[in-house]
Amino acid sequence: MNTKLIKTGKTVEGKEILAVELTNTKGTYVKIYNYGAIISEFVVTNKQGKKQDIVLGFDEFDQYVSEDYLAAYPYLGAVVGRYANRIKNGQFTLDGKAYQLAKNNGADCLHGGVSGFDKKVWEVLSTIDPSLTLRYVSPAGEENFPGTLTVDLTFKLTDEDELILDYKATTDEATIINLTHHGYFNLSPEGGSVKDHIHRMPASNYLKQDDNYVVDGTLIPVEGTIHDFLAPKPIGQDWDPQEGYDQTYVLDKEYGELTLASETSEPKSGLTLAVYTTEPIAHFYTGKYLDVKNGRNGSGYNAYEGFCIETQHHPNAVNIPTFPNTILRPGEVYSQTTIYKIEPTTIS
């Protein structure tokens, strides 16, 4: 097991950009930047015995902050917060006080606003083999959220090919919080559309969304719909090819229990990505809006060439009293664990 810290020689807003490489005894390798807590590379061994990167990303750090990339920004590999997904009209009320957030996605607030945790330089707290702990302190009023929020995020790579993400957060006054990781995965050795990946999710219900993908609190059974992944099937089997999936699923689980959120396999590589989480929700996104130039090895990333499993609390929950609580108060600790585990193909 090995952890290596690399100075990139780059800065953002005067803060040093560092890369941290985690490698296990199997040669599985993960590269993480302290900017946005971005997982830039996740290299595993496929069934042909070849090394394969299963996440979308860039060869050079500068590409993550380039004007072209930010103009059609897809949050490649980043942690998003202070509040993942969409908040209706960018508005919420907390302890009787109304807050107006940025409307950075139509009329709504998406992924924490204009400059969320995905665009921040995190402090490297420790690099103990084989793990990395990052910290970001979000000051009160940042993106108009109340309270100073301190977030610690630990990445740990095991010899079982598990990449474990452990989140902890505290605040000095009441605030709202909903964190997730926005990695795009593609398990094919050749890249391209993920429509033939085999996918399943233990989720009997999904959440109704408006035309801008904002949920209103209504649960809809997946049975008899294109959203039914209770049994394994190709991602593209039932989808609208002009839309793909951008849908929030309610996992069949006990609240807070660490269980399977999804399992996705690709026959050519023989790889399966299993995602486990303590969170109640998995937002499944197949990259309709992907439009990235000069990705890994100079290749572009187009629509439907990556999928995201965004584990989190219910979107817009701060405005829907029947949803699980996303309010954090002084003296409380927000915690979440999500695991990305690479396994031999088990579903077909």
Rank of each mutant, 00 (worst) to 15 (best):
K268M: 03
K268I: 08
T286M: 02
T277M: 04
P267S: 13
E279T: 12
H283G: 03
S265K: 03
S262T: 15
F284K: 02
E257P: 08
P280R: 07
Y276F: 15
T264W: 13
A274F: 01
L271E: 10
S265C: 13
T264E: 15
T277G: 00
Y285D: 01
S262V: 05
S269M: 08
S269K: 11
H283K: 06
T286G: 12
E279V: 07
A261C: 06
Y276I: 02
E257C: 11
H283V: 13
P280L: 10
F284T: 00
P280A: 06
T286V: 05
T259A: 14
T286H: 09
L260A: 13
A282F: 02
E266A: 11
T264S: 15
H283R: 04
G270H: 10
T278N: 04
P267N: 08
S265W: 03
S262M: 13
A274V: 02
T277V: 00
S265Y: 06
L273I: 06
L271T: 04
F284H: 03
K268W: 00
P267V: 10
T277L: 05
E279R: 10
T264P: 09
S269T: 06
T272P: 00
T272E: 14
I281E: 12
T272H: 02
L271P: 04
S262D: 07
G270C: 09
T272W: 02
P267G: 09
G287C: 12
S265Q: 05
L271I: 14
I281Y: 02
T277W: 08
E263W: 03
L271R: 07
L271S: 04
E263T: 14
V275E: 01
P280Q: 10
T286I: 02
E279F: 01
E257N: 14
S265N: 14
L260Y: 05
P267R: 05
P280H: 11
T272K: 01
T277N: 07
T277R: 06
T277E: 00
A282Q: 06
E257L: 12
L271C: 09
